[in-house]
Design a protein around this nucleic acid. Sequence first.
DNA 1: CGCCGGTTTGAAGGCGGTCAATGGGCGTGG
DNA 2: CCACGCCCATTGACCGCCTTCAAACCGGCG
Lengths: 239, 239
Amino acid sequence: MIVNLLNKLARRDMLTERERAILEAAPADTRQFAARSTIVRQGEPLTQSMLLLEGFVCRYIDLADGKRQILEFHIPGDFIDLQGFPLKSLEHDMATVSRAKVALVPHATLRHITETEPHLTRLLWFTTLIDAAIHRQWILSNGRRSAIARVAHLICELDARLEAAGLASGGAFVLPFTQTDIADATGLTSVHVNRVLRVLRDDGMMTFRSGRVTITDHEALAEIAEFNPAYLFLDSQPR
Amino acid sequence: MIVNLLNKLARRDMLTERERAILEAAPADTRQFAARSTIVRQGEPLTQSMLLLEGFVCRYIDLADGKRQILEFHIPGDFIDLQGFPLKSLEHDMATVSRAKVALVPHATLRHITETEPHLTRLLWFTTLIDAAIHRQWILSNGRRSAIARVAHLICELDARLEAAGLASGGAFVLPFTQTDIADATGLTSVHVNRVLRVLRDDGMMTFRSGRVTITDHEALAEIAEFNPAYLFLDSQPR
DNA sequence: CGCCGGTTTGAAGGCGGTCAATGGGCGTGG
DNA sequence: CCACGCCCATTGACCGCCTTCAAACCGGCG
């Protein structure tokens, strides 16, 4: 059931059979959410963390004037609020983008893992740091990249992550986002995202229509984005 | 010697005497760096992590066209490349801003801590997640805040962090940055940062001259920045 | 069939960038 | 001790990317 997480970890380091079994047994329950529903509220005390099994989730902050900034997108296999375990609450909101299904892991179970499984603990710690590395790329995008490069970089990131999760192949994948979602992630307006997507389509680099992305020239897309997947740490080594 | 880190952790949770002693004994060595020197290069394999004792450090990424994005500033007491312990290398560069002094903690020591000190491990994990929370605010700033709000938010952040570290009081602190540093952090040009600083000064909110910040109207500054220090998790609770 | 959320397109405006020149503070060397 | 050079701060004029505002379009669904 949590095969996506296991694949993700196994890609970064070796998991022992015992560690696999512990993770398999970790979820106490599963839960379904409708699309566009808030699943974690900022400041709310947390006693369990969610592992995303199906669907897309985002974290975001709204400003007083109604502007929204999406901070990160999550895909199946992501331990979406594992950060809430050491932090005890989040300083932002999380919401589903599409319908989603999650497994719930009690913090007590995670705490037990930290007390008996140092290697697994380091791996869980590691996964939270991937989120931070993704954040840093978004700071760079929003701060210094042009509109077209921002959108291109986001698509390259999602392609690489979905491909690693087995949810994309050959640059084609389902992405149930609106253009407003992309705008809120890249710090642009939906109007301008629309124009940027047209340029990317006209230049033969990618298309995004009715919730499906097709990358038609990965090399060109990665080049304007200055995309280098090293920050996703997809290589395997002892942690 | 590592009193700043101990204060920082003790502010977030209780440290036992044994844990204090372990942290005190953790540094194998100290090292000094001149201002404006690179101290970690992206991709370089890391075998130790640095605890900042004195001075200011930043992490950054340069783009092909010469544009620079600073990703985070670090102040004394920060475990600046603790992330390099689970990650094994960083995907960006780090450099000093001012002269700086660091304590070096071997990864073997950190690994030993993860194997024998679960509570301390959770606290170290926690501190790396504060960096991620700071990153998220920067994504928001660069994506959705106006130029004046970005600069104001950065100053509020540094004030809060320096105050917590005992390095600022009453909104006055030493900040050995250039206007270009602030520009590279906020995704602006140094020219525009200069204009923004003039507005903030003329409006009686803050001054920044010859490496010193003086906040003259904290309430107004926090208001235009929409600054809420909750994301720094400065409250104390069991982790 | 008509609403509704999302997409697309056009026209006009503004925030912040670019380019360029001046000023100012400080360390260094003659 | 002063002159020079260098880096940083400051200011002005103009420019352009992206925003804003507004309207039309489109497809799905009750």
